[in-house]
Structure formats: structure tokens, C-alpha cells
Write a protein that binds this DNA or RNA. Structure first.
Lengths: 118, 118, 118, 118
DNA sequence: GTGGTCTAGACCACG
DNA sequence: GTGGTCTAGACCACA
């Protein structure tokens, strides 16, 4: 995985894991690799990986069973909410940004239609 | 102006000024306030404002005349390119992000149409 | 039983058993379930349960007879001391904590009276 | 400051700072020492101190101004809520613990009155 | 083996 | 000078 230098690695990893959960690569309740294994996989320091996991846990996206490992939340609402939240953020950022550039809704619509080539 | 804590203030200021240029709030060739005045206006450290201005100048968006002041570029291509570049970035970020969440182009289209209420 | 994630499970189990002894749920000299049965009951790893029991035995609260089973101490002083010790710990923690927050004794008294609704 | 070995140092430091805020040793809006200075004062590693501060910030108890320093929250509700929350936790822990030992409210009242020597 | 904490030291962007 | 991030390595309690 290639990391963007401008945003903290642990955030990029969190984002990646969230995407994997949203897209079903990681299933609800599924056990995820140990911190050590993930650190090796992402080629980062264990502490960096640990931080990503702690944050994910704090957000209720994964949970930990002591001495056993970490698991994706079993709550289907969590996963659905995650997808909803992430897409809402993207939409808001895009529409808000375009409006900030002076485009109105119909112009944005045309532009995105063209970009999607639909 | 409220600053996001995650992204550098000088970048946020640059973005704000770019938007003002793109939307015509700042006209081509118009004189802009002094760094000191701008620092006061944005309520930031003068060094921070200085950096935002140097960057803008480096990108050819504003230019400085010694002892007189700074001005928005007179080149209309600059403004047009700026608008193009900023919107392209937004589009790419949005579409790429949505695809990363598992949406295909037609789904993205539906979602954005709904969000724009068109 | 719901375990607090911050304090070790074996301590929480020990605390629970101590309370059962102090409140008479487990009588003096009474036989307690096997480690295996207790592990199943508390839904924990057998090693964890083993540790809780060893600690309790080390503290003289339960004792083991080889090949027969484990029993709550027959010594009534043990039970009385246990109750005394546990309540003293609670009191000390409470009063010390409240004083640390800046309350003096009379204020603590008022607050606890109100909390107890007496 | 002497640290208890059973609970993480960063939590103990957080608790100490919270108490200082509640008792007015640290006033609302007051600038607190830099992370480096605090680390030296508490004789811990900078990272440990950093963690304590990040957590406090996440809880809204202090806030950071980039490159300038950290400050106690200016919101008086935050401070009041903090005091309330901390004392409520102590009371609940105490009363709940005593009831778990089999004492009823009137007995708890007698015991605490005796302990306070009022 | 698992996560959690701590230390040490370094680098960096920011103000 | 300030906070933030990252790496490296170590130790520990827990399951």
C-alpha cells in the first residue's frame, strides 16, 4: 500500500480497513489479523498499527477480546452507518466544494454526468 | 473564518483566496490587502499569512510588485486553469472515493442526482 | 456476567466470589464448583478461572483438598476480615477521591446523605 | 508524583490534571505547560504525556492552538460537568460497592458518618 | 500469541 | 518553540 505523505499513516490505514468492511472484504464479526500481522502486511511499525486499531475500536467499528484478537463489529447498523457516513462525507465535500467554486446545482449535475460518461 | 484543525491553516487560507479569485470576488489584476492586513483579517500569525502568499505567488496566482503591493494575476488563463484544476480535483476525489466504497458509475450517478434534488 | 475491559477478568471474578462469600451466597465451608465448571459458568478461559482460584487460595479465602474439590474457608474470621477489608477499601477510595476533588468532610457528608436519600 | 503500577500512567496524569482543573489550580482558559515541560514535571516520557493530553483534548477538557500551546477549556459548563461527573462516579462506585457487600442504605450512612467522624 | 503500555529518539510542519 | 507522527525496541499482563 502506498501512503500519502500529507495525511497520517494511521488514518490512511483506518480508511482502508473501513472500506474493506463497507465493501464486504471484511465480514461482520470476522476476526481480523493481529496487530503484529497487520503491521507486517501494511509495512508499518507495530505502534502505528496499534493506533489505527485503537481508533477504530473507539469508533465502535471493531472490538477487542482480550488475549484473543480483534473482530469487526457484529452490529449490522454499524456497517450500514459507516457506509452511509463515508458516502455522505464524500458527497458533501464534493457538492460543497463545487458550490464554493461558483457552480450551481445544475452545472454540477452536468459536470458529473460528463465525468461519469453516462 | 473557522479553521479545520487537521489541515494546515496556510493551505486553508490559500484555498479560500483561490475560491475568491475563481468566483470573481477578487478580480483579475486587483490589488490585494497587505500580508499584515490579511493576517489581521484572518486572525492568524503573520508568518502563516506570509507563507500562504508566497505559495500563491509561487503558483503564479498572485504576483508582487516591490514596494507597491500584491495583485491577482492578470492572465485570464490562470484563473480559468485554476477553476478547472480545482473542480477536476474535486471530481476525482469524489468519484474515486465512491468507487472505493464499492459504488459503480451508475450508482454514483443516481446518488448525486438525488443529493442535488434534480 | 459483563466484564469491564479495563480491569483484568480474573480480578473481577475474584471480586465477585468474595462478594458472594461476604453476603452469604457462598456459605463458610461450602464446596464450590470445579474450576472447569466455574469457567463455563463465567464464560471465560479455564486458565483465567484457574488464576482467580489460585489467588483466592493464596489469600486464604478458599482452600483445596486434593481430589475432592475446593471449599470456602471455614474460618469465620476470614469472612469477617474480608468484609471489613473490602468496605474499608471502598470508604478510603471514596473519601480520598472526594477530598481530591476539593470537598471537605462536611460537604462529603451532605452529598452522601443526599445520594442515599436519607 | 508517585504512580500506581496497576493503572496506566497516562490515565493517572489525566486524572491529576482533571483534579487540578476542578479544584481551580488550573483556571478556565489558562494556558497549560507544553507537553515537553509537563513530561519533565511528571518525569515521564514525552509520548506518554502527549497521550494524556490528546485524550484530554478528545474529551473536550483542554484544547490546542497549533504551534502556540494548549489551554484549559473556556467553557464553564465543561468544568462544572467534570466535577459533577467525577464525584458521581465516586459516589456510585462507593454506594454500589457497599450494597454489593450486603450493606443497606442506612448501614452505609452510619459507616460513612463514623469514617468522617462527624 | 495477543493487545497494551512505556521509553527513547528522531523528524516534520506549523506558528 | 509547539504539537504531531513515526520508528524501534522492550516489557508486561492476560488468555
Amino acid at each position: 500500500m502506498n501512503f500519502n505523505t500529507t495525511v497520517p499513516i494511521y488514518l490512511q490505514i483506518m480508511d482502508r480497513i473501513k472500506k474493506d468492511i463497507v465493501t464486504g472484504v471484511l465480514a461482520r464479526g470476522e476476526r481480523i489479523d493481529s496487530v503484529r500481522a497487520l503491521a507486517a502486511k501494511f509495512e508499518v511499525n507495530i505502534n502505528t498499527m496499534q493506533r489505527a486499531c485503537s481508533e477504530l475500536e473507539r469508533q465502535g467499528i471493531i472490538f477487542t477480546q482480550r488475549g484473543i484478537g480483534s473482530f469487526v463489529s457484529k452490529d449490522e447498523n454499524v456497517v450500514a452507518a459507516l457506509k452511509e457516513e463515508m458516502s455522505a462525507k464524500l458527497i458533501e465535500g464534493f457538492v460543497g466544494g463545487m458550490e464554493g467554486l461558483g457552480y450551481d446545482k445544475s452545472e454540477i449535475f452536468k459536470i458529473i454526468r460528463k465525468a461519469l460518461a453516462i
